[in-house]
Simulated assay, not measured.
Amino acid sequence: MSEDKSTPRILQQQPQRESDPQQQQSGGTDFQSRGQAQGQQQADGKVEGEGSYTATRDYQKNIKDYLDKADVDADAKAAKPRSDAEARDLEAAEREGKSHSRGER
């Protein structure tokens, strides 16, 4: 049987079934809910994936609200290590994490 090399082979993806609330995405290993299968579906019908403008705006708004309303100095003091031993543990964990990164070492 000869195969025509000039005609590209068309791969078909199985259509989404109404009876299956979770369907495996083509090439994926996890099952995703219907809204996740094609990216994030918004109420206005726009699809946003990685690098979502809406998520960026929400994040920036939440940071601004936190900085306007919260006592940042009190939160910073509460986050300080409670002892020298805890400070050493935190520094060791930071060094360990940096040793695995491509950035600063």
Rank of each mutant, 00 (worst) to 15 (best):
Asp20Val: 11
Pro21Glu: 08
Pro21Gln: 05
Gln22Pro: 01
Gln22Arg: 12
Gln23Ser: 10
Gln24Leu: 14
Gln24Asp: 03
Gln25Leu: 14
Ser26Ile: 04
Gly27Ala: 03
Gly28Pro: 01
Thr29Cys: 10
Asp30Met: 12
Phe31Ala: 02
Phe31Ile: 02
Ser33Pro: 04
Arg34Leu: 15
Gln36Met: 14
Ala37Phe: 13
Ala37Lys: 12
Ala37Cys: 13
Gln38Asn: 12
Gln38Glu: 11
Gln38Trp: 05
Gln41Met: 11
Gln42Ile: 01
Ala43Leu: 08
Gly45Trp: 01
Gly45Lys: 00
Lys46Cys: 04
Lys46Gln: 13
Val47Gln: 04
Val47Met: 03
Glu48Lys: 01
Glu48Asp: 04
Glu48Pro: 01
Gly49His: 05
Gly49Cys: 06
Gly51His: 01
Ser52Asp: 02
Tyr53Met: 11
Tyr53Ile: 07
Ala55Asn: 07
Ala55Leu: 08
Thr56Gln: 07
Arg57Ile: 11
Arg57Lys: 11
Asp58His: 07
Asp58Tyr: 05
Asp58Thr: 10
Gln60Gly: 00
Gln60Arg: 14
Lys61Asn: 12
Lys61Thr: 14
Asn62Trp: 09
Lys64Gly: 06
Lys64His: 12
Asp65Trp: 00
Tyr66Pro: 02
Tyr66Glu: 01
Tyr66Val: 01
Asp68His: 05
Asp68Trp: 02
Lys69Ser: 15
Lys69Leu: 10
Lys69Thr: 15
Lys69Val: 09
Ala70His: 09
Ala70Lys: 08
Val72Gln: 10
Val72Asp: 08
Asp73Ala: 15
Asp73Glu: 15
Ala74Cys: 04
Ala74Glu: 10
Asp75Met: 06
Asp75Cys: 00
Asp75Lys: 06
Ala76Arg: 09
Ala78Asn: 06
Ala78Lys: 09
Ala78Leu: 06
Ala78Tyr: 00
Ala79Gln: 11
Pro81Ala: 15
Pro81Gly: 07
Ser83Met: 06
Asp84Cys: 10
Asp84Met: 10
Asp84Ala: 15
Ala85Met: 06
Glu86His: 01
Glu86Lys: 00
Glu86Asn: 00
Ala87Gly: 05
Ala87Met: 04
Asp89Ala: 15
Leu90Lys: 11
Ala93Trp: 02
Glu94Asn: 09
Glu94Lys: 12
Glu94Arg: 10
Glu94Ile: 09
Glu94Ala: 15
Glu94Met: 11
